[in-house]
Design a binder for these strands. Structure first.
Length: 689
DNA sequence: GTCATGTATCAA
DNA sequence: TGATACATGACC
């Protein structure tokens, strides 16, 4: 029987059940129906309005006293409707001066939102100026009731510690593993050697953490990469030590894997971006592979990025952090410069021994007139390289994806045209005769190229997909396979074939490609994007890394002009050099990661209102708002705003938290006042044009 | 977001 | 005067 103490602590006397209390015919529920201890529950309700992003207190009926534990999903009455929520905590007394409504239902006794996961989600919401319910939707998978009842396997015994394996080839590689094994939290930027079997290397790192009783988490860009790491982990550890988490696995499989981690039956996971939240026990190692891939950027509010999320998480949970790839982003370079992370890289001799030879048109023997090459619209060098390589194995042909944004460049030297006021990219909007800056909106009536002094602008060419049929005609009798779009090949056998793939969909060849042709190098520069150079190098290097080393004849033909930094970086296979250059450029232009930046996108008056409410740090620099092309994905149920604008706010990195807080508070004011128009706030978005 | 309440507005 | 519309604030 519940004592009066419990009830008195709630409300001073009885605890009426709201809703029932108003109806004269029904009596207030007696105090005896409340939980004996801690009759008050704090609940995060699933309402994504900024001004409601805080716990609300509910009374715990005695019938739910056992199940209503912190972390469980509950259903409550909120503002007259039934909503889901998470029970955050139980406590003896309420702070809310009014009456408490009771919990309506404990949806599931499974405590899915553990204190650690709640802390992480709260930190993510704060870091990206968002609200907790939005983050919880990303972090906690949908419930699958049948799966909860099923027995989990017994926790597997920790595996033996593996040798350093492939890590011995890298300076500071074995030391990193040693620290992981020793319970420390080193942070490393790993630049993988071309040709590296990186899934195997990551499996070794995961096994090292497991062998020390620590958990491990690996986030890769896509499903195919999950398959590769999954296979490498199984090869090293068997099948019981890890699970996989991907968006495309069914609700049951996903929830089962998630629960296995949550219940501590399994301590290692590999997955795509949502796996960054996986409830791994005793987390000792977090890994992000190829952090430059934009699949690591969450497309749902509040738009967190896996790299930054894992950095945040590793610090909060004392886990080691490993950011690996064949190239290095400016963001990771900034980590190195700041001393936040240390490099794990091979020495130059090892790089030279592992990298393929990279050729550019204009080098090597004079091109001859070759009708077969012309019919495929292939430069002679590419055609001859492929023809020779096809005698030794498969040849990869990387073709660009469609649909790059239109940018402007110097008609003479082809360097990207930038605004003379703020260095933003110039672009031609449809319907406007005068090109304008995409950042500050300033029209560029007259323009002079700072590189060559030219004054004429040219429209960039859109990427164009070459067809496999065209290549097939140029190489009669050679099988042509394609990978990309809907159909992605995992691997190809070690036989002569042309393998046409879009970036990110390149199949792995059993013993490496004999050659790769990287076509349409220009298209990658024609993106109106600050990250174009970095992205070009990343795509080229990821394809070139699948080619055999130069000593075994591996050759890459890159159709891009010599002299541009990403081209030079590929030829010399020096991604660190390129990353340092990129970062220096970002510092110069005052763009991320050199500064923290927020974009506010929405109807003009809504953006103005948000900026008006925001108590921005004194350091804040506001650019725009400027009109932007219609939002490609307007919020559900809303029409695309007719006059969408975008404003940029930049602050020093040290003020990022203050910027996020100011924007969130301003959004809270707007939502409380029901000001019309939705404004999308993004912190450090990738697509700052 | 929903709901309840308060105030302005207008036809009868 | 009563019906209705719209603004406002709370939401536990």
């Amino acid at each position: 029987m519940t004592t009066a103490d419990g009830a008195g602590a709630v409300d001073g006397s009885q605890l009426p059940l709201a809703g029932l209390a108003r109806r004269p015919g029904r009596r207030t529920a007696p105090a005896g129906e409340l939980a004996a201890t801690d009759p008050v529950a704090e609940v995060a309700v699933d309402v994504s309005l900024p001004h409601l992003d805080r716990p609300f207190e509910y009374a715990v009926p005695a019938s739910m006293a056992e199940d209503a534990r912190p972390g469980v999903r509950v259903r409550v009455r909120f503002a007259g409707q039934d909503v889901e929520g998470y029970l955050l905590a139980r406590k003896p007394a309420a702070e809310h001066p009014g009456r408490l409504a009771p919990l309506r239902r404990v949806v599931s006794p499974e405590p899915v939102l553990t204190p650690g996961l709640l802390d992480l989600c709260r930190a993510v919401a704060d870091r990206w100026a968002g609200v907790l319910p939005d983050v919880l939707r990303l972090a906690v998978p949908r419930r699958h009731a049948g799966t909860e009842k099923r027995e989990q396997p017994e926790p597997a015994a920790a595996p033996p510690r593996p040798g350093a394996g492939r890590w011995a080839a890298y300076r500071a590689g074995p030391a990193f593993l040693e620290h992981v094994h020793g319970g420390q939290a080193p942070r490393a930027a790993w630049t993988a050697l071309p040709g590296e079997d990186w899934p195997a290397a990551l499996a070794t790192a995961v096994a090292t953490a497991l062998s020390a009783g620590r958990g491990a988490l690996v986030v890769v860009p896509d499903h195919r990469d999950v398959d590769r790491v999954d296979a490498a982990l199984t090869a090293l550890l068997g099948s019981g030590q890890h699970v996989r988490l991907t968006a495309d696995q069914g609700a049951a499989a996903r929830y089962r894997a998630w629960l296995a981690l949550q219940r501590g039956a399994v301590r290692a996971v590999v997955g795509t971006r949502a796996a960054a939240y996986a409830p791994v026990h005793d987390l000792g190692l977090v890994v992000v592979w190829d952090d430059g891939d934009d699949l690591h950027a969450e497309p749902h509010a509040p738009y967190p990025h896996v790299r930054e999320l894992l950095a945040l998480r590793s610090e909060r949970e004392g886990a080691a952090l490993l950011a690996g790839g064949f190239t290095r982003t400016a963001e990771v370079q900034a980590w190195l410069d700041a001393g936040f992370a240390r490099p794990v890289e091979a020495d130059r001799a090892a790089v030279r021994a592992a990298a393929p030879r990279v050729l550019l048109p204009g080098e090597g023997p004079e091109p001859e007139r070759d009708p077969a090459a012309r019919s495929a619209r292939l430069p002679s060098l590419a055609w001859r390289t492929a023809r020779t390589a096809l005698e030794h194995g498969p040849v990869l042909v990387q073709v660009p994806r469609r649909g790059y944004r239109l940018a402007l460049q110097c008609a003479r030297c082809r360097s990207r045209a930038r605004c003379s006021a703020c260095a933003g990219p110039l672009a031609q909007s449809s319907g406007h005769a005068v090109p304008a800056c995409r950042w500050c909106g300033r029209p560029a009536g007259t323009w002079t190229c700072p590189t060559c002094g030219g004054t004429a602008l040219r429209s960039a060419v859109l990427g164009q997909r070459r067809t496999a049929e065209e290549l097939g005609r140029a190489f009669p009798g050679v099988p042509v396979r394609t990978s990309g779009g809907g159909e992605v090949l995992a691997g190809v056998p070690d036989r002569p074939a042309l393998v046409v793939a879009t970036p990110g969909a390149e199949p792995v060849a059993d013993s490496g490609y004999a050659a790769a042709l990287l076509l349409d190098g220009w298209a990658l520069f024609d993106r109106a994007d600050l990250r174009a150079g970095e992205e070009a190098l990343r795509r080229w290097a990821n394809a070139a890394a699948l080619v055999r080393p130069a000593p075994q004849g591996g050759t890459v033909v890159l159709l891009a002009p010599a002299g541009l930094p990403p081209v030079e970086a590929l030829v010399r296979w020096d991604p660190a050099w390129h990353a340092a250059r990129e970062l220096a450029e970002r510092v110069e232009l005052a763009f991320p990661p050199a500064v923290a930046l927020a974009t506010l996108t929405g109807p003009a008056d809504a953006v103005d209102a948000l900026l008006g409410h925001a108590r921005l740090p004194a350091s804040a620099d506001v650019l725009g708002p400027v009109p932007v092309a219609q939002d490609p994905r307007p919020p559900a149920g809303q029409d695309a705003p007719t006059s969408a604008v975008r404003a940029l706010v930049r602050v020093p990195v040290a003020d990022r938290a203050a910027l996020a807080r100011a924007l969130r508070e301003a959004a809270a004011v707007r939502s409380a006042r029901k000001e019309p128009g939705a404004v999308r706030v993004q912190i450090d978005p990738l697509d700052v044009l």
